[in-house]
Design a protein around this nucleic acid. Structure first.
Lengths: 114, 114
DNA sequence: CAGTTATATGCCGGTCAAGGAATACGCGTG
DNA sequence: CACGCGTATTCCTTGACCGGCATATAACTG
């Protein structure tokens, strides 16, 4: 949930790109290299980070190494997100009623000051 | 969606802690400083990062500055997450049917090799 | 077993982010 | 208007990360 490796792995745009590529289908390193336009070593290093964050698994297929997404870590992300989802549902509700009533004043905060 | 600032903002554990604090309720800086055990300047800098990522908004209240979560960016995170959610639903399904049928062979991949 | 393909690792220089200390700024108060 | 409080900003140093290059490793091929 507050797994630092997971977040730092996803913090990099290239790595998010790789993750997006692997969402479509598992791919060998060569394909990923081509797709994201980085050098092969850089790509391998990014894959290492993703591997150590648990985001991807590797399957050795002859000389090729086929990388695939592991759903679990992203599921943890979703769990982390859950409490916040409630937050913006609340604010959508608020927006809805404001639009609905053509708000006379702006009740921005119900002041939940404990 | 692929907003780099958002991800880098959340990549830091301290900042995620701040975000979690603000989920409970809006808070002035002093409270955040106490809660996360950092120096006041460090905390202010983290708040700046969160602000520039759009994750928080500030309300000036006398000398105090009260920070509150803005739901929108985390909603974008959720949108980013959506395609992956489908992925792990698929794998949960697969697990389910495997458990259900006491799998004779292991149909790991439906081979979506285009 | 030599050669080739596919991937990983080590090393290096540049860049960037984090934390601490000192300081500046804004706002209310006497 | 001087002062005090709460917060932001600057400067500095240190440590992490990124990318490229060269090289090592592993696996198939003949």
């Amino acid at each position: 949930m507050s797994d630092p490796a997971l977040w730092t792995a996803l913090a990099d745009p290239h790595r998010r790109a790789i993750v997006a590529l692997l969402l479509e289908r598992p791919r060998p390193v060569g394909e990923i290299v081509e797709a994201c336009g980085l050098s092969q070593p850089s790509t391998s290093k990014h894959l290492k980070v993703l591997r150590e964050a648990g985001l991807v698994r590797v399957r050795q297929e002859a000389q090729r190494r086929v990388y695939a997404l592991d759903p679990a870590p992203i599921a943890r992300l979703d769990i982390w997100l859950a409490p916040y989802r409630e937050l913006w549902n609340r604010s959508l509700d608020a927006l809805g009623s404001r639009l609905d009533e053509t708000a006379p004043d702006t009740p921005e905060d119900p002041a939940p000051k404990d």
